[in-house]
Write a protein that binds this DNA or RNA. Structure first.
Lengths: 123, 123
DNA sequence: ATTATTGTATTAAGTTCCTAATACAATAAT
DNA sequence: ATTATTGTATTAGGAACTTAATACAATAAT
């Protein structure tokens, strides 16, 4: 899968999303070793520090583990990965619900609008 | 209601949210005249241009109307206001669903997680 | 007609964020 | 022991954004 980096958004966030998808979809299996940061940077045509920033965030989220001098690997624990995935979702949802409340929507309204939009998407 | 401006987020976005709430909750009734931009800026202890930026955005969203030299007013049309409110919600939801999809979640998963979180919130 | 009040445009200063260049540190490989 | 490879830290340049200062334009009020 190519990296398809655009300039309308920070590169490192796009790297994060790309690698997340690679992990979730099994491109990098559980426990497998990742290419070195420099190699990944070169493959994505990106400065090593930019890739570094993405990888550090992914470690904070619990998706990958770094071994000081021998590279990084995907977490071995399937439940850990599923929890990390759920946490990512919950962070997004919290932020989303917070904004909606700031705009004056209550939970009932939010659910109604979401259900309508999902219905539209399924058409 | 005080303005309660914090420094962890752009001021103008907080002004937008504050004024939105004032409109949605009826502090500024439909069709009523708003204080001048300068007055509102002073009341919020903010530079006039910062308030200006918030007001321009609110006009783009269809919530208020500007009369070149005689100030601004809230839209008179209740349906327009309701539409503007819904559009704000839909913009948020689109952005949210987009991020979730980038992270690899499908619609079913998204709905499941949201329902669980809303259940939690109601406790 | 004059003045005061309104929104608008221009410009600049300050800040934060992103990206890159470079050097450093630790250790696996030989 | 030496070397190559790994992640890390530091620093700087530049871009984008936020806020502010100031001047301008139009018109309602007098």
């Amino acid at each position: 899968m190519p990296w398809e980096l655009k300039s309308d958004r920070p590169i490192y966030t796009q790297l994060i999303e790309h690698i997340q998808l690679s992990i979730f979809s099994g491109v990098y299996p559980l426990g497998s070793k990742l290419p070195s940061g420099r190699d990944m940077a070169q493959e994505a045509s990106v400065n090593p520090n930019t890739m570094q920033k993405a990888l550090v965030k992914l470690e904070e989220d619990g998706l990958i583990i770094t071994h000081r001098t021998s590279g990084r690997s995907i977490t071995e624990d399937a439940r850990m990965l599923e929890m990390a995935k759920t946490k990512l979702a919950q962070d997004q949802i919290s932020e989303f619900l917070g904004k909606m409340q700031l705009m004056g929507f209550d939970q009932k309204e939010i659910l109604t609008i979401i259900n309508n939009m999902v219905k539209e998407m399924k058409k």
